[in-house]
């Protein structure tokens, strides 16, 4: 399988725009890997070849890089890539139990995709939202303060095609491929959606305001 001329032309146009941002072309490799992942749902053989051609690298050099980073998938991820944080704090707060129950409920394990291609699961390391533990991510959007029940409901809703809303993020989840395009450096227009901050992010500010505490005047 190779890219059709139309797809190839579109990818090349995007790739050239991305490459143009960097003083040295090779710096565009990580974004281009996200770009081909936005086309195929994983970094395919064609994707590797495309990156190599665009940057004047050998395919081996590109594969050497893509296999280092966990976000580049070697087989198709689901439309909804679901992560459960199992790093120490989230694990203790319930992430371990969420993972066990969710994995059994969905019937797939770490880095595996359901047969219908809709959902893939991943055991995540810390995602920098520890004050919202236990944390889950879907297509790299935050789903905060999860329980085993909410996690199973979330995945059921995703598989049933219902609208699912991240805790701090856009009104509607985009697909794994759409998310990969944003990561490539080609953002959608959803930045204005969702709150500025929510929940624990605001606790300190609330305490400060309630007590009339401010930073000193200049």
């Amino acid at each position: 399988m190779t890219y059709s001329p139309e797809v190839r032309e579109r990818l090349e146009r995007d790739a050239k725009e991305i490459i143009g941002r960097y003083p040295k072309t090779r710096s565009a490799l990580l974004p281009l890997l996200h770009l081909v992942q936005s086309e195929d749902g994983y970094v395919s053989d064609d994707g590797h070849e495309f990156c190599a051609e665009m940057l004047g690298l050998s395919k081996a050099e590109v594969v050497g890089v893509s296999t280092f980073y966990t976000m580049y998938k070697r087989k198709p991820a689901g439309d909804y890539h679901v992560g459960v944080c199992i790093n120490a704090l989230c694990a203790v707060m319930g992430g371990d139990q969420i993972w066990e129950e969710l994995s059994e409920h969905v019937g797939v394990g770490h880095d595996e995709t359901t047969p219908d291609g809709k959902v893939s699961l991943e055991r995540l390391e810390c995602n920098a939202a520890c004050d919202f533990a236990p944390v889950m991510m879907v297509n790299w959007e935050f789903f905060d303060n999860q329980t085993p029940e909410s996690a199973k409901q979330l995945v059921d809703d995703l598989r049933d095609g219902k609208d699912v809303r991240p805790t701090r993020g856009p009104k509607k989840l985009c697909t794994f491929k759409e998310a990969s395009r944003v990561l490539a450096g080609l953002p959608d227009d959803l930045a204005g959606d969702g709150p500025s901050a929510a929940g624990p992010s605001l606790e300190g500010l609330k305490v400060a305001k309630a007590n009339g505490w401010k930073a000193p005047e200049a």
Binding site: R168, A191, G194
Partner: peptide, 14 residues
């Protein structure tokens, strides 16, 4: 920016 925080990346780009 780490890749696993999509909405943060959108806000930075914007």
């Amino acid at each position: 920016v780490r890749g696993e925080v999509l909405h943060v990346i959108r806000r930075l780009h914007a």
